[in-house]
């Protein structure tokens, strides 16, 4: 198994940084060796694909647009009426490639093109709202919500995974800019890189 190199590997230094006394405002943990797939479907294929997905992932409901369903080891992200993304542990790629026929849609692996950070802590929302314009309020962006948005002109996917937990997924070519923005912004609250 080859090691996938993160674009942050040269700059991501473990430890506690910034301004803090007791409580660290933000904890940053990079997700590694994840799988990220983008799936687009033709409208008429959606009913049959819906059934296939429910069966494959043992789901009760198909996620609504803008929402995310947590799977065992991953997340199914509904980014649009006929668009889904899978983010999580490796595994389903081959199954999904086989499941989605060419007449139904397409599955593209973008695992190497993305960088992913798990962000948590009491100040995580304060940090995020310094770059993201989307309303991150409790009712507007509840646990499970996702947004394809941008930070400082760079595309990001933000998923709220808990009360104070988010996944931030972004393009690897802009990873250094995102990291600089994140750490400089978080320094005022104190942050820890795990």
């Amino acid at each position: 198994m080859l090691e996938r190199k993160s674009p942050l590997s040269q700059i991501r230094i473990m430890g506690k940084f910034g301004h803090f006394s007791e409580e660290i405002g933000l904890t940053i943990r990079e997700s590694k060796d994840f799988t990220y797939l983008e799936m687009s479907f033709w409208d008429q294929a959606m009913p049959s694909l819906r059934s296939k997905f429910l069966e494959l992932f043992a789901l009760k409901d198909f996620p609504e647009s803008g929402l995310t369903i947590t799977l065992k080891g991953g997340r199914l992200i509904r980014s649009g009426p006929a668009r889904l993304a899978y983010y999580g542990e490796p595994g389903p790629e081959d199954v999904l490639l086989a499941m989605v026929g060419g007449d139904e849609g397409s599955v593209v692996s973008l695992s190497h093109s993305r960088c992913a950070l798990h962000l948590s802590g009491s100040k995580v929302k304060d940090v995020l709202e310094r770059g993201i314009r989307v309303n991150l309020g409790e009712s507007a962006f509840p646990v499970g919500a996702n947004a394809f948005t941008e930070i400082h002109g760079m595309s990001v996917l933000l998923i709220r995974t808990g009360a104070s937990d988010y996944e931030l997924i972004f393009m690897r070519t802009t990873a250094r800019n995102i990291w600089t923005w994140l750490t400089e912004t978080a320094a005022q609250f104190g942050y820890e890189v795990l």
């Binding site: 393009m171 802009t174 800019n177």
Partner: peptide, 18 residues
């Protein structure tokens, strides 16, 4: 804001940059 100096606008790095 933070759009100054090297962070004026996003820059993209090749995976071979290092």
């Amino acid at each position: 804001g933070r759009s100054v100096g090297a962070e004026l606008s996003p820059t993209r790095l090749s995976p071979f940059h290092e």
